[in-house]
Design a protein around this nucleic acid. Structure first.
Lengths: 183, 183
DNA sequence: CCCGGTTGTGCAACTAGTTGCAAAAACGGG
DNA sequence: CCCGTTTTTGCAACTAGTTGCACAACCGGG
C-alpha cells in the first residue's frame, strides 16, 4: 500500500495535476515506484475523499480540465507516520531467476539470448543513473535533502551494477556449459 | 504470469501434492518466487484443466485427501517455451527507497530504527544463503543442473550483499545528518 | 469407539495493479 | 467560427496476489 504515499511525497515536493504527476512518475519517481495514470487518478480521488489532499482553487472540476492538488496537513502527517513506521520487507520475486531454475530441468535452449538482452537493458539503465548522478549530485553538496536523494540514486546504481555483473557471470557460465540437454 | 511456471518447474523436479508444493515454496523456491497455499491450489486446478499436469492415480479426489500431481508432456513443453521466450524486465518497486525519498520532505524521524532492522534481516538472509552455498555447492561439482542452481543462489547472495552494504552506507549517512528537520 | 487436534484441500472476498477505451475541454488551422 | 486533433480526466473490466475461513479426512489418547 505505497502508491498513496508515493503520490503524497510527489505532491509535497510540488502540487500537481494528475497528468503532471503521471509525467513525474515516468521520470524520477518511477525509477523506484512506477504507476500508470489510471492508478494515479483513482488514488487522487481516494486521497481527496479521505481529506489528505485537496484540489487547488482553479475552475470547477470537469473532464478535460486541469485540476491540481496540494497536500493538506493531515496528508503530511500521514506521510510522516508511514515513513517512520516499520515495514516488512517483501519477499524477492524475480522471473529471470525462476527461468534459470526452470532451465535446469527443461534445458537452456534460447535463454542465453534473453540474458544478453537483459544485460544490455541493465547497462543502459545504469548509464542513465550515472548520468543523473553526475548532473544532479556534484561533489560538495550536502543539504539533508540532497544527501537522502543521492542515497536513493546510489541504491539504483548499485542495484544495476549488481545485475550487470551477475548477468555477465551467468553468460560466462553458459559459455562453458555442454551444448545443451534437450528438453 | 509466472506462478504456473514456478509450479511446473517444481513438479518437474518432483511430483508433489498441494501441501508438499507449499512447503517447497516456503523453502527453496520461495527464495525467489513466493506463493501461498491458496494460490497454489487454485493454480493446480487451472493447470490440470489446461491439460498441463495431471493428478497421479492414488485415491479418488476428495477434501482432506492427499492428491499428487505430475507434469504432462504439454506442461513440459510450455515450461520450455516460457523459459526461452523473451520477457520484459519489470520496473523496480521498492518501499524503502520510497520512504527515504519521503523522508527528504517530511523528515527522517523514526526511519533510522527500521533501516537498522532491515539491515539485520538482510544480514540474516545473507548468512542463510551462504550456509546453503557451503552445504549444497562444494567446489568441484559441475553438472549443468548444479551450475545453474548455483547461479541462482549466487544472485540471492549478491543481492543481499548489496542490500547490507547499502543499508550500512545509509545508516552512516544518517549519523552525519543534522539532528532532524521537523516534519 | 469417539472426540479433539492436526493435516490437507479449497472457496470467497478483498487489495493492488494493468489494459483498453471513452469523453469533455482546449487548441489551432482554414 | 467550426471542425479535427490533442490534452486531460476518468470508468470498467481484467489479472495477480492476499487474507480469512470452512470443511473433510486422518490420527492418537482416554
Amino acid at each position: 500500500m505505497s502508491l498513496p504515499h508515493a503520490i503524497l511525497t510527489a505532491l509535497v515536493e510540488k502540487p500537481s495535476s494528475g497528468l503532471e504527476l503521471t509525467r513525474r512518475f515516468d521520470k524520477s519517481i518511477g525509477y523506484f515506484w512506477s504507476a500508470t495514470h489510471q492508478q494515479i487518478y483513482r488514488e487522487l480521488g481516494k486521497l481527496e475523499a479521505e481529506g489528505l489532499i485537496r484540489a487547488l482553487p482553479g475552475r470547477q472540476p470537469a473532464r478535460g480540465q486541469k485540476k491540481s492538488y496540494e497536500v493538506l496537513p493531515a496528508g503530511r502527517a500521514e506521510l510522516a507516520r508511514w515513513t517512520a513506521a516499520p515495514h516488512d520487507l517483501k519477499p524477492l520475486r524475480d522471473t529471470m531467476l525462476l527461468r534459470l531454475r526452470a532451465a535446469a530441468v527443461v534445458g537452456t535452449a534460447g535463454l542465453e539470448a534473453d540474458l544478453r538482452r537483459h544485460l544490455e537493458l541493465h547497462e543502459r539503465q545504469l548509464a542513465e543513473y550515472e548520468e543523473i548522478e553526475e548532473r544532479d549530485f556534484p561533489p560538495g553538496r550536502d543539504s539533508t535533502e540532497d544527501r537522502l536523494r543521492h542515497l536513493v540514486l546510489r541504491a539504483g546504481i548499485d542495484l544495476e551494477t549488481f545485475w550487470t555483473r551477475w548477468l555477465r557471470h551467468a553468460l560466462a557460465e553458459f559459455a562453458e556449459l555442454p551444448d545443451d540437454e534437450p528438453a
